[in-house]
Design a protein around this nucleic acid. Sequence first.
DNA 1: GTTGAGCGTT
Length: 576
Amino acid sequence: MDFVQVSEEEGDEPIELPAEEDGTLLLSTLQAQFPGSCGLKYRNMDTKAVRGVRSNEGRLFPPSADSGWGEYIYFCVFPKGIPNLSSSAEEIDSPYRPILPPIENKRKSDDNLENSTAKTKRIETRLRCTDLIVLGLAWKTTEESLREYFESYGEVLMAQIKKDVKSGQSKGFGFVRFGSYEAQMRVLANRHLIDGRWCEVKVPNSKGIGHQVPCKVFVGRCTEDINSDDLRDYFSKFGEVTDVFIPRPFRAFSFVTFLDPDVAQSLCGEDHIIKGVSVHVSNAAPKAEQNRHQGPSYNYNSGSNFGMHSYHPQGNHMNSGRSGHHRGNNQHIAHGGDNTAIGNSHSNMGSGGYGMGGNNFIGNSGGGSYGNSSNHNHNHNHGHNSGGNMNRPDGIPYNRQSNFHGMNQPHNGNVGNGGWMSRGHLDMPNLQALGINSQGSSSSNQGQNMSNPLGVGLNLNSLPMNPALVAAALNQWSLLGNQLQNQNQDQQASLLYTIIGGNFLSWMAQNGGGGHNSCNIGNSGGRKGSNNPNNSGAGGMNIKGDNSGSNDQNGGNSWSNQSSGSQNSVDKSNFL
DNA sequence: GTTGAGCGTT
């Protein structure tokens, strides 16, 4: 057997790696010793130049067909040019794009210029690929066809179909491993049609790691003439779009997946005009996060974490959204694992006010911004993102969820005079889409009782039940149901009606006594917990009030207690 | 030769 001498870097102590019978060296053999490596090179003694070793389909070929690998000492090549590398983490070993505190972004340009092998190696070893499971394969799919399919994404180091040992029949799933992190990211961000079946590619449970950052957004209020290309064309200006999915039959919403989760995050909460139609972008909860009760709690809201972690370590306790499933006293809404509890054991529910209840209810979408909104106030985090923001093509910084409260969004105090509509897109579903209007205008709603933001006299029976619009609006609250996917329009309408009439609105309308914190931001002077409609909005900006005290009012509990049952049936995960 | 949510005899 032929051995190839390989060192990590030129001049290092080489390791002898066994070559195959055909004289090639398997990339997997190389990577077993040098994780993250993607090739070999060597110093040509004649030219003094470094020469690369030919690589194809997971095999490295000796420089000479005659003399094989010769006496050269080869050294490793590590990938470069990984997208977002500089802004992704050297700190977190994740198969997904990791989350990096913004302070690291300062070195972006430096990193891009960085060219040393050591540097790239260091990064790559932390961003190394992992096996990916491919679910839903056609029975007929072979390892060859599997490999062939995925090679369009990059070098495939391994493609494996799990088979029945006796019959040899495929079990319908397999594993792939890519040579580059970029390829892995792209694969994870896409849906895959392999041999006629849509397959799902995920990080296997056995890996159990990763901070999955949502790259997919929900686009609500779509019209039927907005097709995939329209969506792709439009959203591509913000960043690379890797997938567009429009549920059929038409339901007035769609999903757009970006390569860069920051882009996706930055768009959430916004209205965009496509073909003259105002669509609304909000978070789409990745399927992978659904119903996962085991394992560590993932920090899901890249947006908020971006803003929070490094600068304000204490901010961990306000990692709203996905961090910490079912923690705190939010278990009343711990349905199906979707609306992960916010962990209101801490102060994050404070001044966010409405957001507090909403936080849980909203789950993912509200998570980042909500937590931030609350905690910005509480922790005085204003403006701390300045160092880490990258700008989107349209000039809007990615880290919007933090910036919202640092600069863009009217402060929560506005609840005092602006009514709940003033709290921004993320806080509430689009009630206009629901066809619901608050009775009072925002200008006359000073001190409106926020626990019934719909106003009085709501006629549930007269609500327009357009499932599509309701779905679009509810998306922000993570209320879309799995069941919707497989039901016909009538069933959807019926279910949505149940949601709306039975829980949603009643949730909205209840909470009589305890009061939402939100309503009481202006009450920080001591009236927290009350819903006194006379609470002047003037105090609204007094957001340094005792928000945590407001939490103690358990206003959130009261509303949420009633929402237990059916919310399990309203989870949008299966749309994704 | 049937099946369709899952997690890998390394």
